[in-house]
Write a protein that binds this DNA or RNA. Structure first.
Lengths: 339, 339
DNA sequence: TACAATGCTGATATCGATACCAGGAACGAT
DNA sequence: ATCGTTCCTGGTATCGATATCAGCATTGTA
């Protein structure tokens, strides 16, 4: 491959085409005041030399890129991937490039504000606006707009997109209660996440609505992962009076419950009803297919992108909290109790 | 939120701290020839003002960022996500940032070289090296290194990471033959992809190795998607003498076969054996769990990142074609024929 | 005492692009 | 002949950072 000795710059193009850099710049930016003969010549040289303008230089000078930034804690978890997918759909349709940034510096920076520096660094320099996924900070110093998806802080100074975690769990609880369950176990998420808190509230309110007292032995704190789901399930199923249903606060957690049920010879849904939360792709093909709360994560991404584009175009967006509704997806992991 | 009127620049910091921009720059870059009193003062001002240096300006001047670029056709397909995950593991461990770029301009540029411009634009300006996933071009004009993952062109002028598609399918075929299958259907991938061609070759060579003639009616071209998998399965299962086994060239395709089998009341694996390719997360929880060829996509990402870091550090990497072995994962979707 | 070495700091050029202003050529109007 | 337009083009300042060189104290050495 031709590893060029040095970059092809706008100067090289100008020299080769026998015009000034200004003219080349005009051609690049599609200004209409260039003679068509000149434009053709410049374009030919651009192709010949394989010239591409430097993003760094362009954005440094023009203070405008065509790029929406996305700052994510990682680039592979199912939640992240789905948000990215939703955002990408909108940005691509509107002709914006999308740049997802996962920093190597999480650990080194104080965990509370690792994204703050990134936002400042990227915004107004490489991106025209930034969407942050599950951010910690409640405010950023920046010239360009910021939109959050599932922020950890409950109140933020920028528009945020949230799912109705509380409502979703409430609905799932109502469903289990309608099937006759009264001992319902709960495996939560990491206590420091706002979403986990909301879901737990939904569980407690769901019990209250059915007039069932909370049994602390049935309420466990997890971390949304499969192994922890399994550990928690072992605890619940070893109780003297085990629950007849388990509400897991994530699909991964629910699969941990599946694992332990198989291990104990407990049949789902005959002996134990299980409800998840997320509606990941796996939940549809699991055995049995998992009844779960659909978070519409992709929709959240789309909404965040739409808000972002509005703000970038100096339109206003009044609402700070934008909720995307959850929906209970009933499959085959629950059954009425035999009572 | 404080939307700042204008960016905080290094100049503002210098003025506030009563030093020159040079000194601030030295502090930022951890040079050791700054008096510690001065350094403390500058750092305090940096924190107070919430200053973060502009990536654009920094890389324009220094010609070195700490960023590895990743150019992908999309940001959500399972293949892409897994590659990103592998790359991210290595870059994060080595202290490099990762920037994944999905262009909105696919469609507008001629499809054959949409990534070429992106590579030139990013490299030597925003990134120090670029990993391209399933690229079309076989060469790029760039000053910084390029590494490809599953390039479409068979021969490239830069290091490429490939999986042993041919070997993987061959192994799957040997397995099916060992179970007694002789009528084996094949649902391929998009004909223009090198990977699809390799897998098809594996199928044909697998038949040849077993001394079975190719029946054109059993060989269909798909596109790796679930709906097309279903359509193809309908065709195969409607034949006068339907196959006893179907080798799907992707897990998604295999799930399409599952769908149609359920529709037709055909039991897997009792009536029909199915083998997939990819070993996605879904394949393990499917009903029945899918026997599939594990591509070790994450490993491919890791290897690509390792090669990239070598090249960025001016080490040499001789081998152009780096193959990551596939492995047959036997689950419960196949059974010996009743003959 | 003179002169070099060291430690720290500032001034200036530069990276590659765009914004802005100025100006030449061709043309018609006065 | 002079002037104002219109159309096109070039020169120069500038974006925010780093690299390089130079300079000023202060200290060490011949």
């Amino acid at each position: 491959m031709q590893r060029l000795r040095s970059r092809v710059t706008i100067r090289d193009v100008a020299r080769e085409a026998g015009v000034s850099v200004s003219t080349v710049s005009r051609v690049l930016n599609g200004k209409d005041d260039v003679a068509s003969a000149t434009e053709d010549r410049v374009r030919r040289v651009i192709d010949d030399l394989g010239y591409a303008s430097s993003m760094a230089a362009r954005s440094l000078r023009s203070h405008s890129t065509n790029v929406v930034g996305l700052i994510v804690p990682d680039l592979w978890h199912s939640f992240t991937s789905l948000v990215i997918r939703g955002v990408n759909q909108v940005t691509a349709a509107e002709g914006y490039d999308l740049l997802a940034y996962a920093s190597a510096r999480h650990e080194q920076l104080s965990p509370a504000n690792w994204e703050e520096r990134l936002v400042a660094e990227l915004n107004g320099s490489v991106t025209d606006g930034i969407i942050v996924v599950t951010p910690n900070a409640s405010s950023y110093r920046t010239t360009a707009p910021v939109v959050a998806v599932e922020p950890i802080q409950s109140s933020t100074e920028f528009p945020a997109v949230l799912s109705t975690n509380h409502q979703g769990v409430l609905e799932a609880m109502a469903y289990l209660v309608s099937l006759g369950h009264r001992r319902i176990g709960y495996i939560g998420g990491r206590a420091d996440l706002q979403s986990a808190q909301r879901r737990l509230d939904g569980y407690i309110d769901g019990l209250a609505a059915a007039g069932i007292p909370v049994d602390p032995a049935l309420v466990l704190t997890g971390d949304y992962t499969r192994p922890t789901g399994a550990t928690s399930a072992r605890t619940l199923l070893s109780l003297a009076t085990p629950p007849t249903a388990i509400l897991a606060s994530s699909d991964e957690t629910a699969f941990g419950v599946y694992d332990v049920a198989a291990e104990y010879g407990i049949r789902i849904p005959e002996d134990l009803s299980v409800v998840g939360f997320d509606n990941t792709a796996e939940s549809a093909v699991a055995n049995p297919p998992l009844t779960t709360v659909d978070q519409a994560i992709e929709t959240m991404g789309r909404l965040a992108a739409q808000i972002m584009l509005m703000l970038m175009r100096d339109k206003l967006w009044e609402t700070q909290l934008n909720k995307v509704p959850t929906k209970l997806v009933i499959r085959q992991s629950c059954r009425a109790t035999g009572l």
